[in-house]
Computed example of a mutant assay.
Amino acid sequence: MSLTEELQTSCSATWNAVTQHQFCRELSDGTLADSRMAAYLVQDYTFLDNFVRLAASAIAHAPTLQDSIPLAQFLAVVTGPENTYFHRSFEALAVTEQDWKEPELWPATQGFQAIMTEARLSGSYSRMIAVLVVAEWSYLEWATPFHPAPETLPFYLAEWITLHAGPEFEGLVAYLRGQLEAAWPTLDAEEKEAVTDIFHRTVSLEKAFFDTALTP
């Protein structure tokens, strides 16, 4: 069992609750209410700034140029096609500019903002990558069974699945997991404990975020 598999297994109940969440099932079969998807996307969009800063910091702390390239390429997707997807979806779901620019943040959203900032300011490449591993790997796992998305789904549901599944996204997740696994043997006991802790807390925040997204 690889290091990332061990980390996943060590919080398997929460991990499975995320990757098999009712929110994801309803999104994927088209039964999710538009109001729920709109609220979810508004909150998720607030992560973009902190996510870009976290990923950029991880790129800056990567051991070599080669280690940094896949994440740099992914940033281009996040700030390009994914950013455009959000704006198209807001328009389709009748979300006003004020609504997505100045939302009232959920506690889970605030927690995610805080943990991304914590990882970025830690100066620890392994902690930064651990947060990114959870964020991307958990989405790959829930989205993959529903990929390709049915053509009957509205684009704001179908494209959210497409953005988080398929060979390119699988490659990104494999790269992130590989980065954490390569760094692990170089870490002392204290840092290994810190990485494990931030991995577990990020998984818990993913569950809290989906739980809140289903709340009427």
Rank of each mutant, 00 (worst) to 15 (best):
Q113F: 11
S35R: 12
L65F: 08
A38E: 07
S68M: 06
T14L: 12
F90R: 04
P81D: 06
E170A: 13
A194L: 10
V131C: 08
A58T: 08
L153T: 11
R53F: 09
E82N: 04
T96S: 15
F23S: 03
F199Y: 15
P145F: 10
A62K: 02
E102H: 15
E159N: 12
S2D: 13
E193W: 03
Y40S: 05
Y156E: 09
A17N: 08
D34N: 14
A174E: 14
W184N: 02
N83L: 13
V52C: 09
L75E: 06
P63G: 10
L214R: 12
T19F: 07
T4S: 09
F47N: 03
Y175D: 09
E102L: 15
L180I: 07
A143V: 00
F74E: 14
A158P: 04
A55K: 09
T215G: 04
Y40M: 06
S204L: 11
A60S: 14
L205A: 05
T79E: 14
K207E: 09
H200K: 11
M128P: 08
P81H: 07
A72T: 03
S204A: 15
T212I: 04
Q98W: 11
L3E: 10
H87M: 07
F51E: 12
T186M: 11
T186N: 10
G178L: 06
G80E: 01
P81M: 04
E191N: 04
E159A: 12
F90Q: 04
E97F: 05
D29R: 03
G80T: 08
L205K: 03
I115C: 05
I129R: 01
T117K: 15
S28D: 08
R88Q: 15
L75K: 10
R36S: 12
W137Q: 10
E118L: 13
Q110R: 15
T46Y: 01
I69K: 00
A13V: 14
Y85H: 14
E6V: 13
V52R: 06
L65K: 01
M1P: 11
L7F: 11
Q98C: 05
A143T: 00
A60H: 11
C11A: 10
T9Q: 15
L205C: 06
T84Y: 08
V203P: 00
G178K: 03
A119Y: 12
T9P: 03
V77A: 06
R25V: 11
Y85S: 07
N83G: 04
F169K: 04
A76F: 09
E181H: 03
T79C: 15
V52F: 09
E191C: 08
W100L: 02
F112C: 06
F199C: 02
G178Q: 01
A143L: 01
A143N: 00
D67Y: 02
W106H: 03
I198A: 09
F74P: 00
P107Y: 02
S122N: 07
S57R: 14
D29W: 05
L71Y: 00
L132C: 05
Y156T: 01
Y156D: 03
A119E: 11
S35L: 05
A182H: 07
Y85D: 11
N16R: 13
V18F: 00
V134R: 01
A92L: 11
P63S: 13
A165F: 06
